[in-house]
Amino acid sequence: MTNDPLLSLRKVSKIFGNGHFGLKDIDLDIAAGEFVSLLGPSGCGKTTTLRVVAGFEAASAGQILLGGAEIGHLPPNRRPVNTVFQDYAVFPHMDVAENVAFGLSVRGTPRAEIRRKVGEALELVGLADKAKRPVSALSGGQRQRVALARAIVCEPQLLLLDEPLSALDASLREQMQIELKNLQARLGTTFVMVTHDQTEALSISDRIAVMQGGEIEQIASPAELYDRPATRFVAGFIGTMNLLPGKVSADGRLEVPGSSLPMPAEAHGFGAGSAVVLGLRPEDLELSTATAGIPIRVENVVFHGRSLRVIGRVSSGEEMILDVPRSAAADLPAAGASAALRLRAGAVPVVLPA
């Protein structure tokens, strides 16, 4: 990847006709060769961002730069990007191979090269045996894979993906996630993907932009988002996070319901009396029947395959979740029993402003 961004959004806003802000002063730099996912709840602005970059929505303010050149004034067909839509957008009068070959044919690519590239693309998406099948005979998931192959086969500089794997079943979706990332790395193409699936975003993205209310809350690597969320929203949205209200004591410790904990060395800028939120991942906690730790009352134990999820509640009413190995099942307290939570050795809690 180069130092200069391939795609830059500079103070991009989108105001719809009803006065609703779809985007609010978005700033975003994406380097050449990156795989970036836009992640967030429905209505957060992730799809609007994609559509503004593609040219299907006009930005109300700001600049959209691709390779340093302003493209915000260009119509979609003149922007050097390809888009894979959630709703397939395949050509019903063509067979599978013709659909995939369409962009190459328009470019005047030699027939032999078209056949080779179409074959490779169909092999990638698992449709090599359906090249001559009419798309009307395909399932919804298969049509989405045709649309993906059609975009990939042209090897664009920037590929925009609007939940491209959402129509696939779970096993194929997981396989395609890996293949999509491998293809992106092999081609060096920049991918920007909209998804609501956290697991998908965390597993294949170089960076993730978490959005809420038309704004980017945080953009970072999957590991940084998970371990060091910058806001309470990100902490509660990415994975499972226990969030406890707290206060910094005069001696610099964290006062939480029923307990006092040392302030993590990574937490800065919280003076005595500061109201904070303490974030604790379920896998970073241990259950103890001793009095030391954060006291809880156990409410339930849920089977989670490789682990058991213990659900309890602290005195102030917040729910607390921790994951324990199945081998510890015999030692778990029963529902209604009192216990205490303590931090596992080496685990670092997250401290955020209240």
Rank of each mutant, 00 (worst) to 15 (best):
E34D: 15
L168Y: 12
A167G: 05
L9M: 07
G258Y: 03
P164N: 04
H196L: 05
T240M: 01
P282C: 12
N242V: 06
A61W: 00
A223I: 12
S338F: 07
F21I: 02
E120V: 06
L280Y: 12
R326Y: 07
A58W: 00
A335G: 15
T289Y: 02
F270D: 04
Q86A: 06
A32R: 15
R186I: 05
L180G: 08
V302N: 12
G239H: 06
T109I: 06
S13N: 08
I311T: 13
T199Q: 07
I64P: 08
G269A: 02
R78G: 00
L39Q: 13
E217P: 03
Q86L: 02
F303E: 10
E70W: 01
G258H: 05
M320Y: 09
A265T: 08
N99A: 08
S307Q: 14
G140T: 10
Q144F: 10
R342M: 08
S105E: 15
S307K: 12
L124M: 14
V302H: 14
F233R: 10
D206W: 11
V276T: 10
R344T: 08
A32G: 15
T48W: 05
E217R: 14
E113G: 03
R78E: 00
V135Q: 02
G293R: 06
S171E: 14
P333G: 10
A328H: 13
R10D: 13
I238S: 02
Q157P: 12
E215T: 15
V302L: 14
L6A: 06
T189E: 01
K181H: 10
K117C: 00
P134K: 06
D197C: 09
G214A: 10
P229T: 08
L308V: 13
E215G: 13
S37Y: 13
G246E: 11
P110M: 04
A201F: 12
K247S: 11
L124N: 03
Q198H: 07
E200W: 05
C44R: 01
L243Q: 15
F91V: 08
F85N: 11
A329D: 10
V81D: 00
I208P: 00
G108F: 08
G141F: 01
Q198E: 09
D87T: 11
P282E: 07
F303V: 08
P349I: 00
G258V: 03
G312Q: 05
F102Y: 15
R207M: 09
A185Y: 05
I216F: 10
T49D: 02
F35A: 09
L343D: 09
G252D: 01
